[in-house]
Design a protein around this nucleic acid. Sequence first.
RNA 1: GGCGGAGUAGCCAAGUGGUAAGGCAAUGGUUUGCAAAACCGUUAUGCGAGGGUUCGAUUCCCUCCUCCGCCUCCA
Length: 465
Amino acid sequence: MRLFDTLTRTERDLRPIDGSTYRFYCCGPTVYGPAHIGNFRTFVLQDVLRRALETGGTRTLHVRNITDVDDKTIRDAQKAGQSLVDFTAGWTAKFHADCAKLGLLPPHIEPSAVEHIPQQIAIIEKLVASGNAYASDDGSVYFQIASFPGYGKLSRLDQRELDLGKTQNARANADEYEKDSVSDFVLWKARRPEDGDNFWPSPWGDGRPGWHLECSAMIHTYLGDSFDLHSGGVDLIFPHHENEIAQSACACGGHFAAHWFHITHLLVDGGKMSKSLGNMYTLADLEARGVTPMEVRYVLLGGHYRKSMNFTLDSLAAAREALAKLAKGARTLAANMGPDTVLDAVTFGPFQAAWDSLNSDLNTPAALGGLFTGLREASRLTGPDAAAALAGFNRVLRALGLTLPAEVPAEAAEIPDAIRTLAETRWQARLAKQWAESDTLRGELADHGWLVKDGKDGYTLTPAS
RNA sequence: GGCGGAGUAGCCAAGUGGUAAGGCAAUGGUUUGCAAAACCGUUAUGCGAGGGUUCGAUUCCCUCCUCCGCCUCCA
């Protein structure tokens, strides 16, 4: 597997640094509301990375956190009149349900921030002792960016921008901060009245941890100070990941992440998703429109992760047709290989090419393309050749995490008697070559929402979608 | 203002210094009483605009246009 690395800006081979297990960390969701499909683009691509590694024979250790304490979770928990724990537990459960529907493998470890407060305090103590952090008068603790020469390397920010606080937002908000430099970031936030019961004791007084620190503490706990890969959406490059590098390097030493994997944002109708524009879709929103989660997953795999991708509702219809086509092709292949053929060698060129695409910087759209091309060429194969092709097809499909729709069986039980009678009458009319009568009845059935399709020996009824 | 990304057919979207994957849609054919479904085809002399390098550029270089993201707690 070769993958682009944000830090070095090169494509590099992914090899476990401990020689056996590829250990990686993904920044998980902040659980104060439903995740939207943009969030899931990131999680789906991380899932594909893991699946591709595992399908290729590499063992993995996947850690993804739950951010359950920050400004928004506290604010909204208060608003909801719930304890922070109860509030975030509800949204975490919903997140897990969505993940399952989308076919995401659960992480091997899923730590949450509030369960790791002591670990976070320990890191702050180290940073204060080493002179990388300082406490302000109100009991907050800040990381001093000037104390870490490597700061800005990941995001390529001009050092002057950081030192002088020249960035627009920093300048506008500078008054709110009690820091030496506007660029310094908070490690520990002093308790404020609006936090309610949500504070923890610390050597600097009551308060709560800063967001950036949460991930560093959990990484330190579960992956140690040097691990294989760190991942998240592009928006996390700065400041979140930049800050993680700084505090982890200063407090723990080690190399931190050997590889940085960032997923570009999903655009909707050509721009960023936002509530105010009304273009923020959750999985539930789409399901309410009759869309299946796999169709959503297919759409999210339809663009390369390093390019922004434009999501439209039309693309979901395209996904439905495309998935049906894949399913049909796979069925044909299975039928052609015969009952007693077992072969797991993958020797069919087009599917090998699709697999190679996936392993070349996770090119999911090229891999999907290869699946269709291969299916067309493989449709003539029989016996062991068909079996080999199917094995190659399934390998790619498994890595993509796609589950194909089953053939829709005619569910006779669900057809109302009235409809069945109508259809039967039409069939008799048709057998009698009474075309006008037959077509009229077909129209009536359509009015009731049923499509009738004629076959050689009978007809099928399906609900019009 | 700083940093970064993108402009490929109606839509979505790969890709490459040697002449444009794939999906959807559309359309032609086979089949069908007619449809639907299925199957087999077709669909960008062209890759934002203009220059340059080259035997040859969509792919490299320059200029310009347009769009998008990030710039202190958003995946």
